[in-house]
């Protein structure tokens, strides 16, 4: 087994220099915005994520080492396996990310990354502290290990995936040449993902390749006609890192405690963010449907609605 470096550790100085460069560029051109308390909160969340990775990362490693015993193939260390692993990891990332937006238990963790009302390179570093406790890696990350990809190879390519995603958190870059916009996740596509305008909700989940969104029907292009509102539907009234980290977990605990049945408790825990038994709260789907109604557009057909069947 080759001794693979941690690419993220090598990238950190570059992250810092680019944040500073974007800050200066934003000041000179007005194209990006930074606010000191927001920047501080994002960077502290990033630092906390690194520390929690050291403390809690062992849970993920232990899981992968266990699953490795049952690997179906013995995949070696040839260079092309790294390329295949990178693409497959990005595919797994797409679904992992999609469910992080549609299952409240996983949203409680991922909401941290979306909690800034700004969109700049420091936002990329605003990361959760309790990620391993969501156990998402069991359901998603383990597949590649089970196929036979060595865990170290997966960690290596996943790090490059995260490094790629750093630079797309910016308003400084408008659009890239069309072939790149078609294939890759870009600042424009990812701005859509961070937007809370109803038209953009729950769109563009891709990590590196935007083709997954095109394939699975979640792609939405950025329009110049509408100013983007960043953050979450109900923005936080604080920059306190602990509150940023815990607020949605606390919300789940409160809701589950108040649940009147097991079904309600499961809905609060595993339903989409905003779900409530009486429908009195807003989910992305209800917000989008209301917006479409206001715009005079036809709301999307419900997943359980069947197309009319022709009489035989």
């Amino acid at each position: 087994m080759p001794n693979l470096p941690d690419p993220i550790l090598w990238a950190i100085p570059g992250f810092i220099l680019l944040v500073i460069a974007e800050m200066i560029y934003g000041r000179l051109t007005g194209k990006t915005r930074f606010e000191p308390r927001d920047t501080a909160a994002s960077l502290v969340m990033g630092l906390g994520n690194t520390v929690s990775g050291l403390v809690l990362g062992g849970i993920v490693v232990a899981c992968f080492v266990f699953v490795e015993q049952f690997a179906l193939l013995d995949i070696g260390w040839a260079w092309y396996w790294f390329v295949i692993a990178f693409v497959l990891d990005d595919f797994v990332y797409y679904w992992s990310h999609r469910w992080a937006h549609t299952v409240r238990w996983w949203w409680a963790d991922h909401v941290v990354h979306h909690s800034s009302q700004h969109y700049n390179l420091s936002t990329a570093l605003r990361q959760p502290w309790l990620n391993p406790l969501t156990l998402k890696f069991i359901f998603l990350g383990s597949w590649l290990v089970l196929i036979g990809f060595p865990p170290a190879m997966i960690a290596f390519v996943a790090a490059f995936n995260l490094i790629y995603q750093f630079w797309i958190h910016t308003e400084a870059i408008k659009r890239l040449p069309a072939p790149i916009e078609w294939l890759m996740n870009t600042p424009s596509h990812h701005r859509v993902h961070h937007a809370t305008n109803p038209r953009y909700l729950d769109r563009n989940y891709a990590g590196v390749f935007i083709i997954w969104d095109r394939l699975f029907g979640t792609f939405e292009p950025e329009t110049d006609a509408e100013e983007i509102r960043y953050g979450i539907v109900r923005n936080l009234g604080t920059h306190n890192p602990l509150t940023i980290c815990l607020h949605e977990w606390w919300g789940i605990i409160k809701d589950v405690r108040s649940a009147r049945s097991l079904r309600d408790a499961l809905g609060y825990w595993l339903g989409p963010p905003g779900w409530s038994p009486d429908g009195s709260r807003d989910t992305s789907a209800t917000l989008k449907a209301r917006w479409m109604e206001e715009q005079g557009l036809t709301p999307p057909r419900k997943p359980d609605a069947q197309p009319p069947v022709a009489a035989e």
Binding site: I16, I20, M23, I24, F34, E35, P36, T39, L43
Partner: peptide, 9 residues
């Protein structure tokens, strides 16, 4: 970095 942000206004 935060001080730089404050200094730049």
């Amino acid at each position: 970095i935060v001080l730089l942000n404050i200094a730049m206004g």
